[in-house]
């Protein structure tokens, strides 16, 4: 087993997340893509922690922090989606132009 395998897997997951983030029109799916990207970063951190710093696992500490921030982000993001849905009666990303010039 090598570090490169995990890094390549995380890179693939990150790119899938970016694709979903840009192309999906459902606001909930956009949040799911953000979760995918955060998980790819977590996989990177855990890999570095295991292969480059096994004596004092600082990468895993950062992984736990990223998990915390991701949970907070998911809660607030879904609340925002809910509020926008109540006001605009749609969840189409193309019609969320409240802050667009």
């Amino acid at each position: 087993m090598q570090l490169e395998y995990f890094l390549l897997l995380a890179a693939a997951l990150f790119c899938i997340g970016i694709y979903g983030l840009i192309t999906s029109r459902n606001a909930v799916r956009v949040l799911m893509s953000i979760e995918l990207m955060l998980n790819a970063v977590n996989l990177n951190l855990a890999g570095f922690s295991n292969y480059l710093d096994p004596a004092n696992i600082r990468g895993q500490v950062f992984t736990v922090f990223v998990i915390t921030v991701a949970a907070a982000e998911a809660a607030v993001g879904l609340a925002i989606v809910l509020a926008i849905y109540r006001n605009r009666n749609t969840i189409d990303m193309e019609q969320f132009n409240l802050l667009k010039w």
Partner: peptide, 29 residues
Amino acid sequence: LNADFVAAAQILVYVGAVSVLILFAIMLV
């Protein structure tokens, strides 16, 4: 990757909380 605590936290937080939260959001909208 020898990260057993992080694996358990991943199951608890993501599978247990975030997935259920997203399912609830889908049901609400």
